[in-house]
Simulated assay, not measured.
Amino acid sequence: MRKLLSILSVLCLTMTFAMATEPQPEAFTLNEKEIAAEFDQLNKIEKYVQESDVTLEELQAENSDLVSGIELSANSSNVLSAVEAPLGIPAFWWGCVLSGVGLLLVYILSDQNKADTKQALIGCLVNAGVIILLNVGLRAFFW
């Protein structure tokens, strides 16, 4: 049993080190001039929309010069769902790793959000399934 666990541990560590790469420094550099230019364009759009009593959809439909080259989306649900996750960890992983405690934490921290609680419950069920399969497999292997 110890040999099997040792071999599995060494295999997991080897794969982890083999898959790891160094981060590229250009991925973490900020171009402040480019960011300022994009925000200037957004500020112009906001000012125009507020002054002329035009909606953003109408402005996009007119193919105005203000919105050319800019992809504006009113759908921000993906961004909000990542921000609302407790500690930035998806609800599934809370349930999968911490089981019932994770399910309870997600229920409390997400203000009783049914979708997140369901994901945490699925994580709990996956955790239980893996434990049962490992238990049955190890008993069959060693008995």
Rank of each mutant, 00 (worst) to 15 (best):
Trp93Asp: 01
Trp93His: 05
Trp94Ser: 10
Trp94Leu: 11
Trp94Arg: 12
Gly95Leu: 10
Gly95Phe: 09
Cys96Pro: 00
Val97Asp: 08
Val97Asn: 10
Val97Thr: 15
Val97Gly: 05
Leu98Ser: 12
Gly100Asp: 01
Gly100Ile: 12
Gly100Asn: 08
Gly100Glu: 04
Val101Asp: 01
Val101Ser: 07
Val101Gly: 01
Gly102Gln: 02
Leu104Met: 11
Leu104Glu: 03
Leu104Cys: 02
Leu105Pro: 00
Leu105Ser: 03
Leu105Arg: 01
Val106Gly: 01
Val106Tyr: 02
Tyr107Glu: 05
Tyr107Leu: 11
Ile108Met: 11
Ile108Tyr: 09
Ile108Trp: 11
Leu109Tyr: 08
Leu109Gly: 00
Ser110Thr: 15
Ser110His: 07
Asp111Asn: 07
Asp111Lys: 04
Asp111Thr: 00
Gln112Ala: 11
Gln112Glu: 05
Gln112Lys: 11
Asn113Gly: 02
Asn113Pro: 01
Asn113His: 05
Asn113Glu: 03
Asn113Thr: 03
Lys114Asn: 01
Lys114Leu: 04
Ala115Asp: 10
Ala115Gly: 01
Ala115Val: 14
Asp116Phe: 12
Asp116Trp: 09
Thr117Ile: 10
Thr117Leu: 09
Lys118Ile: 14
Lys118Gln: 12
Gln119Thr: 02
Gln119Arg: 10
Gln119Val: 01
Gln119Phe: 10
Ala120Lys: 07
Ala120Arg: 08
Ala120Thr: 12
Ala120Phe: 10
Leu121Cys: 06
Ile122Arg: 02
Ile122His: 05
Ile122Thr: 10
Ile122Glu: 03
Gly123Trp: 02
Gly123Ser: 04
Gly123Gln: 04
Gly123Thr: 04
Cys124Pro: 12
Cys124Tyr: 07
Cys124Ala: 15
Leu125His: 00
Leu125Gln: 06
Leu125Asn: 07
Leu125Asp: 00
Leu125Glu: 01
Val126Ser: 08
Val126Tyr: 06
Val126Gly: 02
Val126Ala: 13
Asn127Ala: 15
Asn127Cys: 14
Ala128Cys: 12
Gly129Pro: 08
Ile131Asn: 12
Ile131Thr: 12
Ile131Val: 15
Ile131Phe: 14
Ile131Cys: 13
Ile132Lys: 07
Ile132Leu: 15
Leu133Lys: 04
Leu134Ile: 13
Leu134Asp: 03
Leu134Arg: 05
Asn135Pro: 00
Asn135Asp: 01
Val136Ile: 15
Gly137Asp: 10
Gly137Gln: 10
Gly137Met: 09
Gly137Trp: 08
Gly137Leu: 06
